[in-house]
Nucleic acid binder design. Structure first.
Lengths: 137, 137
DNA sequence: TTGTGTTAGCGAAACCTTTCGCTACAATCG
DNA sequence: CGATTGTAGCGAAAGGTTTCGCTAACACAA
């Protein structure tokens, strides 16, 4: 049989997307900043009730995938997200637009948000950004 | 051991997110409209070189997940996406914002797009949408 | 009818993700 | 110094996804 190994190849190319649990861990790291496993685990266990071992393992998997980094000099080891929240959001979004719309879909993204919870402040902020963007191009 | 079954539960609640291949198939359906397996397969095989059986199986999996529907009266059976492209985009985006930012992040989404390929036309369209949104609230 | 090709489906293999038990080791306490 | 507690890691199980081989059923031409 011919079974492809795209996942593996992608990972070697450094373009692996975080899975569900991985994303939860990243969120925790974004919120907490660099933290030891114990801290991360406490938060994760609140959400999922999983075991300490699981958290350790997930972090080690994420380390080999390059999703997190760690300082091994410190004891206990300190983990941090390899990507900033904004950078991650940007990547996810780009990928999303790419996958769902074959790229370039500014107005559709806005449309998607339109039903949502944009406040007056956010709308003004958005206008400001639009002006900036126009200025640049 | 305690192994959770969140995926299963989510699915029963109707909130399963399509996986990689599933999304590819949805894209094909969005582009082609309702189609028999053969058509879908031809496209999918171009992208991934996979077997006809695989396409059939994926479609049957997606059917049980409710991601696609099919007309069994016609021969061959005709499959179609259960969700429109726009609706899917909206769901993905909401989920993304939820997962990465705990909700509400209009300006951040725009920021994420800022480096990108927004044309003058798109920016104007965006302004128009912002006006509309403000009007509604 | 018999062969030829197309469609549908099942079950299992391969792979990936998530989970944990068990073990080892370091640090800290009495 | 033990004994106890916290940290790190490995390997394997459980679950999910993706892949296909094989078989059955159906349609249509020879």
């Amino acid at each position: 049989m011919f079974h492809s190994k795209i996942g593996e190849v992608m990972r070697e190319l450094g373009s692996s997307q975080p899975t569900a649990v991985e994303l939860e861990i990243l969120r925790i790291l974004w919120e907490l900043g660099p933290s030891p496993v114990r801290e991360i685990h406490t938060r994760l266990a609140e959400l999922k009730g999983t075991n300490y071992s699981t958290t350790v393992k997930m972090l080690s998997v994420m380390l080999t995938k390059g999703l997190v980094k760690r300082d091994e000099n410190a004891t206990p080891h300190i983990y941090r997200a390899a990507m900033t929240r904004d950078r991650a959001a940007k990547r996810f979004l780009t990928e999303l637009i790419e996958k769902v719309y074959d790229g370039s879909a500014m107005s559709l993204v806005l449309q998607a948000l339109a039903g949502g919870k944009a406040s007056k402040t956010e709308i003004d902020e958005a206008r400001r950004l639009l002006d900036e963007m126009e200025g640049q191009s």
